[in-house]
Design a protein around this nucleic acid. Structure first.
Lengths: 210, 210
DNA sequence: CATAGTTTGGACTTGGCGGTTCAGTCTTTT
DNA sequence: AAAAGACTGAACCGCCAAGTCCAAACTATG
């Protein structure tokens, strides 16, 4: 993808943005290139001009783009999850972000789930994105351990895994039921779990209970 | 599906069983009817004879069958989740069941996720199965409330939703990483969360911490 | 044993969708 | 302004998977 003029870059960007919302609405297999062509007001040749690898190439770009949007929505909390307040702020930001969404597919993980078996490269890319996300959670918890906010014996990586699973599951159930409540309940549950690991003299109970 | 002889019923059953493992391995869109035909040692006409609605009809049968297997694996715990010991037993049974599995797709919810937008009937069926599952969890928690095992203010339905999300998320992440640990961590997290709601004089801490 | 109904095999049809091609237009550069 | 190269539109191709058809082979009854 070298030698793109400003116009070309703009077109590519327009395609990614529009295609993201389309794909997120109906899934990878539920949306054809022709529909994307119409939805983005482009032509087939443009699609293949900017994404030589075809559909999976486009989906990869979409996954990266959507991931960046999701991560941006978690700013500034995601970068410093090392206090009870920041976790609550993060939870609120996540719920707020997904509350305003209209598309059906919310979790990139779930989106790519159905093509993962036939597209290992894409699966690996999404797995890497998920790992980065998970690492952000774990990093915060690790600092909380160091700062004595969590009890001895707390395993930051394992706790992060549990929180991440709650998040992904919340998104999945939210998607299936078209209701934000499962996500909210899942994240509140995850926070309750974390507070159960709070050091005794701290309590962590400063935050809301639900 | 009336007028099936014993032989016909056996054939239909054989198809469902074999097709379940195939579909669970590669996903709905990743597995063609021709591959299913080969894998089940049948012919196209049989597939459409026993499942007049075609592929979605077959997938619906598979979803029901797999659901019954998954629920059976949770016996006897799933029917009486009204003590701390039963929750721990349930958690262990779930982890044990999925530990022995070889297929890639574990959660029926995730399986159907990718066809849900284009097949509302199937989506509704799976949603109903999920609801029944969720209700089992909620019923146990409700009894625990009544028996004073959970603090006042605990919302059984919401807690069940959080546990269910942890479970589904654990399965999803487990699938993506091909590792049982995410599921175990997610369920342990869910149990930790529940114990955080234990009535003061009980503690619920009798169970393991991880 | 006849006959109606069920079960089976495998070739055939159809359509949708990812991908290709090419001619034509716009941009940039010198 | 002219040439090189990036960008665009639309018709076209070919594959492959879902779904159809029909004749043959069973199986249950009278």
């Amino acid at each position: 993808m070298t030698g793109l003029t400003a116009k070309g870059a703009a077109t590519r960007d327009r395609i990614v943005r529009a295609a993201t919302d389309l794909i997120l609405e109906r899934g990878v297999n539920g949306m054809t290139l022709d529909e994307i062509r119409v939805g983005t007001r482009t032509s087939k040749s443009q699609l293949f001009h900017y994404f030589p690898g075809g559909k999976s190439d486009l989906v990869a770009a979409i996954a990266g783009f959507q991931n960046s949007r999701v991560m941006a929505a978690q700013e500034p909390w995601i970068d410093g999850l090392d206090s009870w307040e920041s976790w609550q702020g993060w939870r609120d930001a996540v719920v707020a972000y997904y509350s305003n969404l209209t598309h059906k597919y919310c979790s990139v993980t779930a989106l790519v789930n159905d093509v993962a078996p036939t597209d290992p490269a894409l699966a690996a890319q999404v797995a890497a994105l998920a790992d980065r996300w998970l690492d952000q959670l774990a990093a915060g918890l690790r600092r909380m351990c160091d700062n004595g906010l969590l009890r001895d014996g707390a395993d930051p990586d394992r706790l992060a895994l549990a929180v991440f699973a709650s998040l992904q599951g919340g998104l999945l159930v939210m998607q299936a039921r078209d209701d934000i409540e499962p996500l909210a309940a899942a994240l509140d549950g995850a926070l309750t779990m974390l507070r159960a690991w709070a050091a005794e003299d701290d309590g962590g109970g400063a935050g809301r209970t639900r």
